[in-house]
Design a protein around this nucleic acid. Structure first.
Length: 376
RNA sequence: GUGGGUAUGGCGCAGUUGGUUAGCGCGCCAGAUUGUGGCUCUGGAGGCCGAGGGUUCAAAUCCCUCUAUCCACC
C-alpha cells in the first residue's frame, strides 16, 4: 500500500493507499488537534485549500469530548465531516508539552487534565484504545518526547521505555483490529524513533523499531530546542536505518525551509502548528519569506498577502484589511490568515512533489530558499 | 454663586511621613513561538507630573494664585 513512484537523490515521491483514500507524499498534514482547525477554518474550507490529511490528538479528544462519544457518533471523520485520512498523535507529545502536569511511570503516564485538573492515566494500551475509538486512519505509538537538552542516561532510559511501550502498542493494535466492534479494522500504526541529538542512540533505536515491522516510522523529539543543523544531521544519520519501503514522518516540523531540507533527506510526512498558530499571531507565509502583517508598514497596503498566491484570501482581501481585522481581534482576520497559510503550505508540498517527479528537486529547493530570503 | 474633590506618557491609574535616572495596566512599535492551553514570553518608544509663583539642601508630594474639570447645594 506504500509505493515509491520516483526518487530524485534521496527525495522520494510516494503514495500511501489507505482505507480512507490515497495520500500523495511528501505531504504536510494540517493540524486540527481537537477535531477542528484553529482559526474557524471548517472542514469544508479544507477541500479548497488542498488538505490531504488532518491531524488530531488522542489526549485532547480523550479529555474533551471523550473518545467514547466520538466512537458512538461513528468516529472522528464522521464527527467532523471529513472523509479523507486522519492521523492521530498518541499523546506522547503532551508528555513533553504538559510536563508540569504529569508523572512518567513504567506502566504509562499520569496526567492532571489541563481543563479541570482531574487525574488521567494513559499508557500504551489506553492510547491505542482511544485512537481505535477515534477511528483515525493512522495511529501513532505512545512514546515519550524527551526534553532537550537531556543527559545520555536520561535519554537511554527514556528510549528503552519507549521501545517497550511500542511493543505494547503493537500488541494492543493487533488485538483491537481483530474485534468486530472496532470502527476501523485497517488502522495503521506508526512507530516513533527517539534519541534526542545522540546519533548512536537514534541509530540503535531505529534498528530496534524497524525489526518490529510497523506500517510507518516517525522521527520524534526534534525541533524541541536543538539547532537546525543538529536536526538535519540527525535526520541524515537516522534515515539509512529506517526501512525504505515504509513512509517516514518528521513530527512537528516545521518551517517551509525545514520541510525543503527534510524532503531532500527522504522524509514523506510533516505536520506543524506554525501556519495556524503563527497565522493567528499575524505571520503570513509567502514566497518571499515570513511577513508580520501587524507591522505598521502594511497599514495602507492594498496588495494581497502574497502576490504570487492563488488562494481565495489572496484573490479577495488586502493586507491593510487583514491587518485591521487582526488588530480589531475579529475572528475573520484569524480565519483569513490561517486559510492562506495552510494553502501556502499545501501548495508548497504540491510543488515539491512536482519537482521530484521532474527530477529537478535540488534546483527547485535552492530557488525557493533564495525567494524566502528576499525582502518584501 | 457657595462648599468639596481631581489634574501624572494616547487612555485609565500608583506614587508611601518631601529624598537617587517618576512607576503600573491597556494601547502603540518590534521580536520570539516547530507531534497547538485562541496563549504566553521578551524587548522598545512615549511624561519639562495642568500653569505661574513661593518654602526647602531637596517638591509629582507642602503653601499661595490662576486655569480646566467633576460632585453636591443655592
Amino acid at each position: 500500500m506504500y509505493k515509491i513512484l520516483c526518487k530524485d537523490g534521496n527525495a522520494k515521491r510516494c503514495q500511501l493507499e489507505t482505507v480512507h483514500g490515497t495520500i500523495q507524499t511528501p505531504v504536510f498534514m494540517n493540524v486540527g488537534t481537537v477535531g477542528a482547525m484553529k482559526g474557524a477554518v471548517s472542514t469544508q474550507d479544507l477541500q479548497t485549500i488542498k488538505t490531504q490529511v488532518v491531524l488530531c490528538n488522542t489526549y485532547h479528544l480523550h479529555v474533551r469530548p471523550g473518545d467514547d462519544i466520538v466512537k458512538n457518533i461513528g468516529g472522528i471523520r464522521k464527527f467532523m465531516v471529513w472523509d479523507k485520512p486522519v492521523l492521530t498523535d498518541s499523546g506522547g507529545f503532551q508528555v513533553f508539552s504538559l510536563a508540569k502536569l504529569r508523572k512518567i511511570k513504567e506502566e504509562g503516564v499520569y496526567f492532571n487534565s489541563h481543563i479541570d485538573g482531574r487525574k488521567i492515566f494513559m499508557g500504551p494500551e489506553e492510547s491505542i484504545q482511544i485512537q481505535s475509538n477515534i477511528a483515525s486512519t493512522i495511529a501513532m505509538a505512545f512514546d515519550e518526547c524527551p526534553p532537550h537538552p537531556a543527559t545520555r542516561e536520561y535519554m537511554k532510559d527514556s528510549i528503552d521505555r519507549t521501545t517497550r511501550w511500542l511493543a505494547r502498542c503493537k500488541k494492543e493494535m493487533q488485538r483491537l483490529n481483530g474485534l468486530d466492534t472496532t470502527l476501523n479494522k485497517s488502522q495503521l500504526l506508526f512507530g516513533i524513533n527517539q534519541g534526542g541529538t545522540f546519533e548512536d542512540i537514534r541509530i540503535e533505536h531505529a534498528k530496534k523499531i524497524t525489526d518490529m515491522e510497523l506500517d510507518g516510522y516517525a522521527l520524534g523529539g526534534l525541533a524541541v530546542g536543538e539547532s537546525h543543523e543538529e536536526m538535519y544531521n540527525i535526520i541524515e544519520k537516522t534515515m539509512p536505518y529506517l526501512p525504505e519501503d515504509k513512509p517516514v514522518y518528521l513530527m512537528g516540523v516545521g518551517t517551509p525551509a525545514n520541510i525543503l531540507e527534510a524532503v531532500e533527506r527522504g522524509v514523506d510526512f510533516f505536520d506543524c502548528v506554525y501556519p495556524a498558530r503563527n497565522g493567528r499571531h499575524g505571520h503570513a507565509y509567502t514566497n518571499h519569506g515570513k511577513m508580520n502583517i501587524l507591522n505598521k508598514r502594511y497599514e495602507l497596503d492594498d496588495k494581497p498577502l502574497d502576490e504570487e498566491c492563488s488562494c481565495p484570501v489572496c484573490q479577495t482581501y488586502s493586507r491593510a484589511y487583514i491587518r485591521h481585522l487582526l488588530k480589531a481581534k475579529e475572528m475573520l482576520g484569524l480565519r483569513l490568515m490561517v486559510t492562506h497559510n495552510l494553502y501556502f503550505y499545501n501548495t508548497l508540498m504540491e510543488e515539491i512533489r512536482d519537482a521530484i517527479e521532474k527530477g529537478c528537486y535540488k534546483e527547485y529547493k535552492n530557488k525557493k530558499l533564495e525567494g524566502f530570503k528576499e525582502e518584501m
